[in-house]
Nucleic acid binder design. Sequence first.
DNA 1: CGGTTGACCAAGT
DNA 2: GACTTGGCCAACC
Length: 104
Amino acid sequence: MRKPTDFEEKVYEVCSRIPKGMVSTYSAIAHEMGKRCYRAVGQALNKNPYFPRVPCHRVVMNDGRIGGFGFGGEREKIKRLKAEQIQVKNNRIVEFNNKLCKSL
DNA sequence: CGGTTGACCAAGT
DNA sequence: GACTTGGCCAACC
């Protein structure tokens, strides 16, 4: 396994700050780092060496879509989200604007 | 050091 | 609604 870069560590750190029952977006995390590297954020989460520690399933697209998930695919991600009272309908977060946590 | 690859985004068709 | 295009940025080869 490769050692995570500073960039990736920052992504994991920010991601771990997302409160339970809330979600954030790749764009928001990138913005928190003062850059627009939303794609790189996604790649960092795909590797995600700190799986249980970092709740990467709370990170979704800017439109409220699910996006992807390395472990088990979107199905598993939706399942995990439902366990935190975040409901997903037709591949979209229900009341996404209400659950979204933009400031970390 | 140039080209390809993504858990992306926005605008156009 | 879906599909395509161009842009974006770090990691990888």
